[in-house]
Design a protein around this nucleic acid. Structure first.
Lengths: 240, 240
DNA sequence: CGGAATATTGATTATCATCAATGACGGTGG
DNA sequence: CCACCGTCATTGATGATAATCAATATTCCG
């Protein structure tokens, strides 16, 4: 859900290495930025399950994910959890923060990140406005995704939520969808329980919209029906 | 929910006038920005109920609200609606847009706006990086609010949602809360129906947390209890 | 004052959560 | 290689919460 800005990824990966790649002809104008960014960047490896951004902590860094998958969430005192999104290579974390981080970020598997000190960013942004534009686009993308998700959480039923999620994971025209996440995470992302997720999967299967190979892999059969469901054409389509 | 950046407001209001205010000593360094902004700004008056940003339309402008209240929402084909936020003077709209606007913006009452052509913004941002930072902060604020709202929509029950909304509308230590919006809007904002909103109000009243003067004005009695409810300390606190 | 729009209250139903049990999967160690 | 155990996913039975449908109250304006 967080925008994948490939240029940022390129910048960060080079920053991660800690030196410039003068040989790359595609973006010779960016070298200075990379140079400066590299100076304020720190690479870190995160082990699966580890949390590397904590809700409420002072927001000291922007964090770029360069490898692995991350779940981003908020939690209530009594343990209820809402996953606000997932992040992968090229995604920026820490954009949604003022003084403190608003969310917690946790590694789903082995993750590599690059931290940029926020304080040090100001002069960089001033020197390289294109970078500011990139950050702005990244923030805008997240915002667009967040708004779509608010509609999903507030106004869609279980089957529609699941259909929308599945549609969002379709790559190209391939109808095999991979679900590399646990049911708990899916539930906390869609605002449901694991049991309801299971039943919604079962319902979509019964209606011939999908085939379930196993918990982590399904195939879409009736693409149009699933799409109609996901787009909220009619809540009655989503019954039983 | 959308950040109120007073400097932006100042800039826009001056831009709206269409000329510079050389007499203001507080921010003499900003005059050039204002000058340029004024050239790409267009003021517009919006009558109550009118829609001035439409979901799906090409995102041609950034829009700054200078007067009045705005509701920002997404709609499904069958009419279901999710209000993603409200905007007032000083709030920026159109940040959450890539190619097209992701949401619709509608005037609740008489509204005045200033439109800035997106295309024309690029050189301005390049020339005045501080402006880019302001936009970034505005986007970050919206993002923080959006994430909090996702938690609310996905994981809170009706009474908690209402309590959280009320807490968010408390100004200073004043316990009189104004609700200048219709129940339908509140319902679409909290992901509930008007009936459930009514009953949740009734429940909070029965529990002695609030006093309801009329549909548009309540007073908080038990501030701590309401706050505990709003922060999601325990869902059982929210029963009956 | 009257009538429309809005809000509340009541009765019932639908959806989803909860509690509980079973089943599948994956890794470990015998 | 397979039995065992723990985790995760599914299925079932029941209950709670909120939606829906319907009827009244209230407010807002002309």
């Amino acid at each position: 859900m967080i925008a994948e800005i490939e240029m940022q990824q390129i910048l960060a990966q080079r920053a991660a290495v800690g030196k410039l790649d003068h040989a790359l002809p595609a973006m010779p104008k960016r070298l200075d930025e990379v140079d400066i960014l590299a100076q304020i960047a720190k690479v870190a490896d995160i082990i699966p399950g580890q949390c590397f951004i904590r809700e409420g902590d002072p927001a000291a860094h922007y964090v770029l994910v360069t490898a692995g998958s991350v779940r981003v969430f908020k939690a209530l005192p009594d343990g209820r959890r809402a996953i606000t999104g997932f992040a992968g290579p090229g995604d920026f974390l820490g954009l949604a923060a003022l003084d403190c981080y608003a969310t917690t970020a946790e590694a789903i598997n082995a993750v590599q990140i690059v931290r940029y000190k926020r304080l040090d960013m100001a002069p960089v942004l001033a020197a390289f406005p294109a970078l500011a534009t990139l950050l702005l686009v990244a923030a805008a993308s997240e915002l667009v995704a967040a708004q779509a998700h608010m509609m999903l959480l507030g106004r869609m039923n279980a089957r529609e939520k699941l259909a929308a999620f599945l549609m969002g994971r379709v790559v190209a025209r391939n109808r095999d969808v991979a679900l590399p996440l646990a049911r708990v995470d899916l539930a906390d992302y869609l605002g449901l329980t694991v049991e309801t997720i299971s039943r919604a999967f079962g319902a979509l299967k019964r209606d011939g919209m999908i085939v379930i190979h196993n918990a982590a892999s399904i195939t879409i059969c009736d693409y149009l029906a699933l799409k109609a469901l996901a787009s909220g054409a009619d809540p009655r389509l989503a019954r039983h």
